[in-house]
Design a binder for these strands. Structure first.
Lengths: 190, 190
DNA sequence: AGCAGAACTTGTCAGTGGCAAGTTAGAATG
DNA sequence: CATTCTAACTTGCCACTGACAAGTTCTGCT
């Protein structure tokens, strides 16, 4: 018995294969035909599920925003503060670097996709909730909106730099621990 | 008289065209053949100057690091502090978004290129000098190395998010002003 | 003057994304 | 159970791309 005509779970399989390929060689090197080969289907099969390459990457990005929201909700559910949320952001980026690599590159995505927009706003809400924690803990009158953007920036920047390998090697090889140290100065009252 | 056989300034022309194309459509959509057409040369001409696509992007990244170092040196020369250096970082990213888009994507580059390494370390030194300013102003015992990474992270994160269009629209349309507000909390003694 | 090498061209190949048209399987409906 | 409808997939094709090989034209140096 060879492969059945219907794969049965092609969409998920392709997304997983894409994540793996991107993790190894970056989004630019991604080939739909290569994914199809890995999944054992014809070269045109991916188009059926995703329309085109941007469609596949958009689905991956949406999945990424959902995973990020999950991560942030989880740290909040376990009573973590902003600092923990920040570390969670970095943990997500490192654990799902393929998703992360695609989420903030609008040129690669279908910006109008409703699923992407939904996932994005879910993640945004989770981020907002984490920032609300900050506002409670530190009432010294700083604009909450700005404070949230500061937190997002430092965490996003650290994750990006870590993944790009630009950070100095003496930081060690534990991204979460390093992130905690680098992020802390933003929140520590001095 | 038609075009001379020798273009005369092809290398620079190609880099400029590449920057323009990337600014408009991102690095993924870049085509060497399209650049060649825009420059009025044959499709194989770019390979002569850059070897391959990664070579061209590497040259662009190196140019970017040099421009960044210039920018940072400039703010330092005019007596700016860390905050100004941070704003300068953002100014560079926005003014040269194509360079910036390529500089931190190792998969697209020849990591072994000596010119790239040289430009990178020049920028790194300029960044270090800016951070040294911070250490003088704020001697409350924070690890200088960590403080530098915090500053780099927040600035890099802001620039990345701004360029990706992920930041909320109510921040206004002046990236430097917005950056100053978002970065300030890291440095302001509270 | 002549020559070495740099700058560029022409030709070609395998690989890619996207489209159109066909085929198969499975699910719903009678 | 037979029919039909549609989603899931295939085959075939085209224009385009990056890379390489081999040839041509120009420039600078001796």
């Amino acid at each position: 018995m060879t492969r059945p005509y219907h794969h049965g779970d092609l969409r998920r399989t392709l997304l997983a294969a894409a994540a793996e390929a991107i993790t190894e060689h970056g989004p630019a090197a991604l080939s739909l035909r290569d994914l199809a080969r890995r999944a054992g289907v014809s070269h045109a099969a991916p188009a059926h599920h995703f329309g085109d390459k941007a469609g596949l990457l958009t689905a991956l990005a949406a999945e990424g925003f959902t995973l990020l929201a999950d991560e942030l909700d989880r740290t909040r559910a376990t009573g973590g503060g902003v600092l923990d949320a920040g570390v969670g952001y970095v943990r997500f980026a490192v654990a799902h670097r393929a998703h992360f690599a695609v989420m903030f590159q609008p040129e690669l995505l279908n910006r109008t996709d409703p699923e992407l927009a939904a996932a994005e706003s879910r993640a945004s809400a989770a981020l907002g909730a984490a920032v609300a924690t900050l506002r409670d803990a530190d009432r010294r009158g700083a604009d909450a909106r700005i404070a949230g953007l500061s937190a997002w920036s430092i965490v996003h920047g650290f994750a990006t730099l870590w993944l790009s390998g630009a950070l100095p090697g003496d930081l060690g090889d534990d991204p979460e621990e390093a992130a905690r140290q680098v992020i802390r100065p933003l929140f520590a009252a001095r």
